[in-house]
Write a protein that binds this DNA or RNA. Structure first.
Lengths: 145, 145
DNA sequence: ACAGAAATGTAGCCAAGGCTATAAATCTGG
DNA sequence: CCAGATTTATAGCCTTGGCTACATTTCTGT
């Protein structure tokens, strides 16, 4: 056998690790999107209503309700039945980080020649997989040009 | 009301669209990873065994089996019970596209100052969300420097 | 050749994130 | 102030992509 390591062997070790990391990133991606959206709505309209969250995320209300439930479970948001949703301090901080990262990613894409509208669309999917190291590299690149 | 469009309204239209697109990309991301991995293994060891696929993807065999079942359902792979997995022509083409895109993404990250190892890790998650337009922009950027 | 090891398959569980349909609560206008 | 419209909640159901546990098949070495 060339290699038959069950997990994290010297040959394929890094590979499996990478995929696990990508999967982990995906698991928080949706929370990040919802947190940012709730923050947007809070700023624009004073509070985030389930209906508005759902409309902006392009999902049905039950889906938005479940997402909010998860946010609450993670300590990122609070809400009372039939009332608006509000981010906790942790949730607000997350939203701020997400928004900043989104902006940097869009700016970098544009800087390397991606059309603005395409950059906005692609950034939505990309941003959740940009590590801190890469984000800082992006900022440095944008700063020195 | 500032805006209360149920879906795709003039105000929040683009937003919901973006999220939908990001979700769609995610639904094919795993298939792409498995296809590329199977292609890798086919080249390295002549055929892709479930056990090897699972080890490299960092999942258990049943998970790999289910992913292969989905690949087969999508017409991207074929296999007989207790035998190796082989990509169809479509699967091979997909794997080639994925590998090319991965390389371009890593190269671009490195070009803007991301460390090689970080670039490899982040690319694993990023690549699935890079549209054709963005990919071509990346290639153009890499070519003219 | 055949017993034990290794690989594969299968069944069933879980959580996430979609959905529809239905119920309950809140808001609003007449 | 109350009925109808709107908003929220809840109860299923689906698929995906993980998992463990167990059954079956193939491979392998003595």
């Amino acid at each position: 056998m060339t290699e038959d390591t069950p997990l994290e062997g010297p040959n394929d070790g890094p590979t499996a690790e990478r995929f696990c990391q990508a999967r982990a990133a995906q698991s928080v991606a949706v929370l990040e999107d919802y947190a940012e959206m709730i923050d947007d709505l809070a700023q624009e309209m004073g509070e985030a209503r389930i209906t508005d969250i759902a409309a902006r995320m392009g999902v049905t209300h039950p889906t938005a309700t479940k997402a909010v439930a998860r946010l609450k479970r993670e300590g990122l948001a609070v809400s009372r039945p039939y009332r608006g949703v509000f981010l906790t301090e942790a949730g607000t901080a997350l939203a701020a980080r997400v928004r900043m990262r989104h902006r940097v990613v869009v700016d970098l894409l544009v800087a390397v020649g991606v059309p603005q509208d395409t950059a906005e669309i692609d950034a939505e999917g990309l941003e959740h997989h940009v590590s801190d190291v890469t984000l800082r590299a992006f900022e440095a690149f944008l700063a020195r040009r």
